[in-house]
């Protein structure tokens, strides 16, 4: 068209280099045999071996995964409900309030969310005696609250794009609203529910700030452990740990991304075929 794309493409390349060079550099240095994390001393995989012997890291990783599994599942259930309520029920009392409460955590800085949950848990203990000690439960509750918003947003936007005519057709054919929901709407948004769950899972697995407020003695999640280690500086074993985490997440995201994409395309094709068959 004109000379501009050359400039744009240069910036694009620069931008991707900016996004990926630090991560790649970190991954490369995880194979560094030198104890000094930033000076290359030859190839080695010894830090990965050391990592597998580190019980503290393994225990923290196990705890993080447990919390992430529970909180992602519960926040997906709650978030799907909220998304359906906001996208499908036009009028109900408290609609404004629900949509406000769903969107405002998005613009709430993590520190404020963390502090308000911590004060809440302390006050709750003061008046009801529960939770006796902050730990697994309080961290899980906090994670559900921060990821709920994201799940709702994903579900809501998927539902607002979905074709209403199928649901209306089922309704016209005499289905009850609840049947329409479970037989048509939920299967349609199944891929969105999956991506919402995945999003909630990674948010939980990754959170430091809110967790640091909601947690108590003895409950050290992986990000909290990494945070305390990283504050002391760069070490090769953290490089190795980071490489594993980044690789696992990247592969998981790519695989589900492709799978969800394919499922949606298949659904679209089936719908098209069904239309054609009826014509």
């Amino acid at each position: 068209m004109n000379r501009r794309p050359t400039f744009l493409l240069t910036v694009l390349c620069f931008g991707f280099a900016f996004l990926y060079v630090p991560i790649v550099s970190m991954m490369v240095f995880s194979f560094n045999s030198s104890r000094l994390a930033t000076i290359w001393g030859g190839f080695s995989t010894k830090w990965y071996g050391k990592l597998l012997e580190n019980d503290q890291i393994l225990a923290a990783a196990k705890l993080s995964v447990e919390i992430a599994l529970i909180s992602a599942t519960l926040s997906t259930i709650l978030g799907t409900m909220a998304g359906i309520a906001l996208a499908r029920f036009r009028r109900f009392r408290g609609r404004m309030m629900l949509s406000g409460m769903v969107t405002s955590p998005l613009i709430m800085p993590d520190v404020i969310t963390g502090i308000s949950l911590l004060i809440f848990f302390i006050m709750l203990k003061e008046y009801t005696g529960w939770p006796a000690q902050r730990g697994f439960t309080t961290v899980t509750l906090a994670h559900i609250s921060i990821s709920l918003t994201y799940v709702t947003t994903v579900i809501q936007s998927r539902l607002s794009q979905a074709d209403l005519s199928i649901e209306e057709a089922a309704m016209d054919l005499g289905s009850r609203p609840w049947q329409v929901m479970k037989d048509i709407t939920l299967p349609i948004i199944a891929p969105a529910i999956l991506s919402g769950w995945l999003l909630a899972f990674t948010i939980s697995l990754d959170d430091v700030v809110v967790t640091s407020f909601a947690t108590g003695p003895g409950t050290t999640t992986l990000p909290i452990l990494i945070w305390s280690k990283v504050k002391l500086g760069v070490t090769p074993d953290i490089n190795a740990l980071a490489t594993i985490i980044v690789a696992v997440v990247a592969v998981a995201v790519l695989v589900t991304g492709i799978a969800v994409n394919r499922a949606e395309r298949r659904r679209d094709r089936d719908a098209r075929l069904a239309y054609q068959a009826n014509e």
């Binding site: 550099s25 970190m26 995201v253």
Partner: peptide, 23 residues
């Protein structure tokens, strides 16, 4: 996909990656 991918990978670790570069 490449723009979104860093968003999924750990925020803490992406900050950490820079500490190595700043040294």
């Amino acid at each position: 996909m490449l723009v979104i991918l860093p968003f999924w990978t750990s925020f803490l670790l992406r900050v950490y990656a820079w500490i190595g570069l700043f040294g």
